[in-house]
Nucleic acid binder design. Structure first.
Length: 909
DNA sequence: AAAGTAACTTAGAACAAAATAC
DNA sequence: GTATTTTGTTCTAAGTTACTTT
């Protein structure tokens, strides 16, 4: 049982403190100078040079591009394809703009258009590594400049540029040792604290019912289900196959539970501190008693009011509920990009027609073309409903909420060995149209409504069998205590399994999450050797080893994912091992350009300087017989790679590198925290570090649709401040002309201002002033009336307005003459002070604008939730005295209670 | 070995709520 | 206040990995 991991504790971070350099080698690299760069210039666009682009574009390079027939699974081409992802390069600014062309048509990373033969047959074509190339030196380590664009696949049909391809290059450089200062880490302590102190040793807390452990692990492999007698029982073949024996130590449980429950109820506290216990291993027994209510099904479909009908070719159709519901799925989406997408429409329509055949409209109309379908009436109805809902009174809303909470209450928690644990996704997924990401071949397909007959539940043998909230019997009931899911089903669109698990804050999830980070820390101890080995293997005479080494190099330096093979029925995305010929381009002397779609069809686009040997290897891997569509690493699979990794360190797999590099980088970046800054400044430093990690992991988000507008608005706001500053400045000069000489800095005109803006701004101000005056006047009148006084004459208002207008005329005049009369009460001193204040405001606004820009397409959340060891954050917060709640939202704190408990301020990853 | 199964982690979009701007 | 923007949460798709079956 559990005992498993003795070692996991104490990891020391080699070289961390000392770090200087070593670091360099550890982290993925940030080139020289670290931080800093954030500055204005942000992205150093390295690539402007044009080199990059060659990607798909000029086929020239590849000589042959025709598809390669041979590949093994000739992915059928779906003709279209090309459409998508346009990367428009929004503002040209980005790099690419440069030379020739931006990526206009589509950068199409994926050559996909046509078919992509991703074949495995292709594998094997490669020649053995001839030694030819081995050079000896390896040198510089890669320095990467990255570019990266996002152009993610989201391309909405409409030509909106959703995203431009923008390289966000970041280059951080690091000064050699500089780290010294690291504030922190108190030196030494570190070593020790490595182990999070206390805790680490599991204080064997009486795990309650002991049962668990006691239960023999024997059960180990599945316990299978037996037909629960109660109600139905036919539980299908229960879990298919496996018959397991079950150990369950059940007996005692009931008792325990009861007591526990009571306690719990009283004071919520008493939270179970699982991290103080011994961790449990993989296929081991996870529970002894397990109670829950499985899933909550959505309410049945409620037909639309009779007057709401879709039209076909102008004719309203009366649809039976079954087909009406499907029509409604699409109807609700007509304003989204999905509804414009050809593939989505095609798939939807196919399923819709099938539905109509079975449940035809009363009108006896044959629906043959989606273009003739008009879902607008449905759409509008939904919109009205939304409005109605919004307009409900507070009480109505509250009543609804209460009803909902009541309905959900039984599903919120599960009892695990007597402990109350929060369930994650207990809702059965509602029917709808499948929204696959990127060019998913199945997008738009109808996802069926689930029934109990679709669901298999996993629950304690002695637990009461849950009764579904809609009629029906479970597909199966099993009692496998080696797994943690509550329920699962197979989804009809892709045939994928879906599971209901406990929430992220549960002990099961917490334990494995912590184990994940411990494993990543374990890697610290082995990474030097691993790097040395793969660097050596880059020159191996064995092709398979050479490829593996090269892949590992990318995984380590670029944080690529493993990259399993994918099927025909999925979007064509790749990871390291599945990179194909066309995803990597070489630019001598040592630059490699990556351009491919990764998980979720997010574009990975980077120019990287690599070791000479790596460059040579890629050239070799792309050599002759190989062509577009072939695997770059034809002798490598994720299985092989992971097997090798596992031999270097137990439990090591490709994904561990991402975790390790992300956390390591984060910790390192945090050293830039200003020791004496304000809390806001520290948080900014924290976010900057977070951002570096997000960029490393290529975590992107789509740029919000109103980003441009919003940005322009902010820019105007800054200009408005500058306008005020100008007025102040000119006033001082009127007071003291000599200042012009004395303060040349004040003599300069504000940047970024032009006549156009002045006009606009002044007009704006005028309008606002008029508006305010009117409002004020009205208000005063109302008040006067209330107090029985006489209303003021309209004339008064007119006069006031006139005054305002005159003032503005004055403004204009001042602007033309560049002379501003000091306003009453103005003194040189006061004005100068105001200018200083204004400068600050302007600077702040600018920084804010830049920050926003830097984050517009970067998603920080993913790395925070999944990759960065939360203990780094906790320790940092303690060290810099920043309240943790400013860094972790409520759910994150619930997810990481263990980190809060075990990381002291000197804790290091 | 390749294909398929199972279980669990990671991911961005969509939606909801809270914070700010107006 | 109300509208808008930002932040946080939910949802479920899309990965990884180990294991099993063919």
């Amino acid at each position: 049982m559990a005992s498993a991991a003795p070692d996991k504790m104490a990891v020391s971070a080699p070289g961390f403190d000392s770090a200087p350099v070593t670091v360099a080698s550890h982290a993925p690299q940030l080139d020289d100078e670290d931080m800093s760069d954030d500055e204005p210039l942000i992205r150093k666009k390295v690539n402007g040079s044009g080199a990059k682009k060659r990607i798909g574009g000029d086929s020239s390079n590849s000589s042959d591009d025709d598809e390669k027939p041979l590949s093994k699974k000739p992915r059928v081409s779906n003709g279209m394809t090309s459409k998508k992802r346009r990367v428009v390069d929004s503002d040209s600014d980005e790099s690419d703009a440069g030379p020739s062309v931006k990526k206009e048509p589509e950068p199409t990373p994926k050559t996909n258009g046509t078919s992509k033969p991703r074949s495995s047959t292709a594998k094997k074509t490669a020649p053995p590594a001839t030694d030819s190339d081995l050079s000896e030196d390896d040198k510089p380590l890669a320095k990467r400049t990255t570019t990266n664009g996002n152009g993610s696949g989201k391309a909405n049909g409409n030509g909106k540029p959703t995203s431009a391809a923008k390289p966000k290059a970041k280059a951080t450089k690091k000064a050699p040792s500089s780290d010294e200062d690291s504030p922190s880490l108190s030196e030494e302590s570190s070593s020790e604290d490595e182990k999070p102190l206390a805790k680490r040793k599991p204080v064997p807390k009486p795990r309650q019912s002991a049962g668990s452990t006691t239960t023999t692990a024997a059960a180990k492999k599945k316990v299978k289900a037996e037909p629960e007698s109660d109600d139905d029982d036919d539980d299908v073949p229960l879990a298919k196959g496996k018959a397991k024996a079950k150990p369950t130590g059940k007996d005692k449980k009931p008792v325990v539970k009861k007591e526990k429950k009571v306690k719990e109820e009283e004071d919520e506290e008493e939270k179970y501190k699982w991290w103080e216990q011994e961790a449990l291993g993989d296929g081991e027994v996870k529970w002894t008693s397990f109670e829950h209510n499985a899933v909550l099904f959505p309410p049945p479909y409620i037909p639309l009011p009779k007057n709401v009908k879709m039209k076909y070719d102008g004719v309203p159709l009366t649809l039976p509920p079954e087909s009406e519901e499907v029509a409604g799925f699409f109807g609700a989406m007509i304003e989204t990009d999905h509804a414009q997408d050809a593939k989505f429409r095609e798939n939807f329509f196919k399923d819709f027609k099938t539905m109509l055949d079975k449940y035809p409209p009363k009108e006896n109309v044959k629906v043959k073309s989606l273009d003739k379908c008009d879902f607008k009436p449905m759409f509008e109805h939904f919109e009205r409903e939304k409005e109605k809902k919004k307009a409900m009174t507070r009480d109505e809303k509250k009543a609804i909420k209460e009803a909902k909470d009541k309905m959900e209450a039984p599903y919120l928690f599960a009892m695990v060995d007597g402990r109350k644990e929060k369930v994650g996704n207990f809702r059965a997924e509602p029917p709808g149209l499948f929204r696959g990401r990127g060019e998913h071949p199945k997008k738009g397909t109808l996802k069926h409504r689930l029934r109990p007959e679709d669901i298999i539940i996993n629950i304690g043998k002695d637990a009461p069998l849950p009764q579904a909230n809609i009629p029906g019997k479970w597909k199966g009931v099993q009692h496998d205590n080696t797994v943690t899911w509550l329920a699962h089903w197979k989804e009809n669109v892709n045939g994928n399994a879906k599971y209901v698990f406990l929430s992220a804050g549960s002990s099961w999830k917490g334990q494995s999450d912590r184990a994940k980070f411990e494993k990543a820390r374990e890697l610290i101890k082995h990474v030097d050797k691993i790097r040395k080995d793969y660097t050596e293997d880059l020159k191996s005479k064995v092709m398979a080893d050479r490829q593996r080494a090269t892949a590992l190099y990318f995984i380590d330096r670029l944080a690529l994912r493993a990259g399993n093979e994918k099927g025909e029925d999925e979007a064509d995305t790749v990871g390291c091992c599945s990179l194909r010929f066309e995803h990597v381009t070489l630019t001598p002397p040592n630059t490699v350009v990556f351009d491919f779609l990764g998980k979720d069809s997010m574009r990975f686009f980077q120019e990287v300087q690599v070791d000479a040997q790596v460059f040579k290897n890629i050239k070799l891997f792309k050599a002759e017989p190989k062509k577009k569509g072939d695997d770059l690493f034809d002798r490598l699979t994720t299985t092989l790679l992971n097997k090798h990794l596992n031999s270097m360190m137990p439990g090591l797999t490709a994904k561990v590198f991402r975790t390790y590099n992300a956390s390591w980088t984060f910790q390192k970046q945090l050293k830039n925290t200003p020791k004496n800054g304000t809390v806001a400044e520290k948080i900014a430093a924290y976010n900057t570090a977070n951002r570096e990690v997000a960029i490393l992991c290529n975590h992107q988000k789509s740029v919000s649709k109103n980003y441009d507008t919003s940005k322009a608005k902010h820019e105007d706001k800054i200009r408005a401040l500058k306008y005020q500053r100008m007025k102040l400045r000119l006033q001082v000069f009127s007071l003291d002309p000599k200042l012009k000489k004395k303060r040349p800095d004040l003599a300069e005109d504000e940047s970024d201002m032009d006549e156009d803006f002045f006009e606009r701004h002044e007009t704006d101000l005028l309008e606002k002033a008029i508006d305010n005056a009117k409002k004020k006047f009205e208000k005063e009148n109302i008040k006067a009336e209330e107090e029985g006084e006489k209303k003021k004459d309209k004339k008064e208002l007119d006069e006031r307005l006139k005054e305002i207008k005159d003032e503005f005329k004055e403004l204009r005049k001042e602007r033309k003459s560049k002379k501003v009369e000091p306003r009453r009460g103005a003194t040189e001193e006061k004005l100068l002070e105001q200018i200083t204040k204004m400068d600050e405001r302007i600077a702040t606004a600018k920084v804010q604008l830049e920050d926003r820009d830097k984050l517009k397409d970067v998603a920080l959340g993913t790395s925070k939730v999944n990759y960065i060891d939360p203990r780094i954050t906790v320790a940092w917060a303690k060290r810099y005295d920043v309240p943790l709640e400013k860094l972790f939202s409520k759910t994150l704190r619930e997810k990481f209670p263990w980190a809060e408990a075990e990381a002291e301020k000197n804790w290091v990853f």
